[in-house]
Design a protein around this nucleic acid. Structure first.
Length: 203
DNA sequence: TCAGATGGCCGGCGAGAAAG
DNA sequence: CTTTCTCGCCGGCCATCTGA
């Protein structure tokens, strides 16, 4: 049974009644009374085009005020989590041995943290992924970003709903695997890892 | 039986905020 | 000006379904 525009409109309206707004691509995919967002792209020339034809208010969630609000939220969330991790690292290793915003790759990019410990030094990049697709996107993005980075690097994922099992599943599905110096850890696993690292001390 | 419709996975990219 | 960061969307690709 082919999806018609009217049938999709019914699904959109049903979603609206339940949520007070219309769905994004991911929400369309998860909603039983709607086709896949992929199919909407193929059959109707994309989500913004279909939304326009259905007369919806928000045509594209990646632009305008709706995006602006989301970007602000993302920025604040990132800063708050980074402060928390900063506190944990400083308590354990001390100010002298935790470098923030360390330049690397000829000062092209910057790390969140770089830690000097006993017989060990490693970089940390803190991030928050709202869902599994975002997780994939962030990991791929950072893989490109850090492709010339040779020290050990921890990508620290801070969404508590995404645990290490989900992360490992995601990594095993990756087509081009991460290089061996890069690990992706949940907060739990990261704290476990920190227990195995001895701080440097000034005598 | 088989071509078109559909679902779903994965990678890439641009929008916008924020900070140097 | 430059950069990073995440989200929402698009497109390539392949597997599965469906109906004539």
């Amino acid at each position: 049974m082919a999806w018609t525009k009217n049938k999709i409109k019914d699904g959109f309206d049903k979603f609206y009644q339940e949520h007070g707004r219309y769905p994004t691509a991911l929400e369309i995919d998860e909603y039983a009374d709607l086709p896949s967002s992929r199919q909407i792209q193929r059959r109707f020339g994309g989500l913004p085009k279909l939304r326009q034809e259905l007369g919806l208010e928000t045509l594209d969630f990646t632009k305008g005020s709706i995006r602006s609000q989301k970007a602000q939220y993302i920025g604040k969330r990132g800063l708050d989590f980074e402060k928390e991790i900063r506190k944990v690292l400083l308590e354990k290793f001390g100010e002298v041995f935790v470098h923030e915003q360390k330049p690397f790759n000829d000062y092209v990019g910057r790390l969140d943290f770089f830690v000097y410990a006993k017989n060990n030094k490693f970089g940390i990049d803190v991030f928050f992924a709202s869902d599994i697709h975002s997780l994939m996107g962030c990991i791929n993005y950072k893989q490109r970003l850090y492709k010339n980075f040779t020290d050990g690097l921890i990508l620290l994922q801070l969404n508590p709903e995404i645990d290490q099992r989900i992360i490992d599943q995601c990594l095993s599905n990756k087509k081009n695997a991460l290089p061996s110096n890069i690990a992706v850890l949940s907060l739990d696993k990261f704290l476990e890892f920190l227990k195995t690292i001895q701080p440097l001390h000034v005598l």
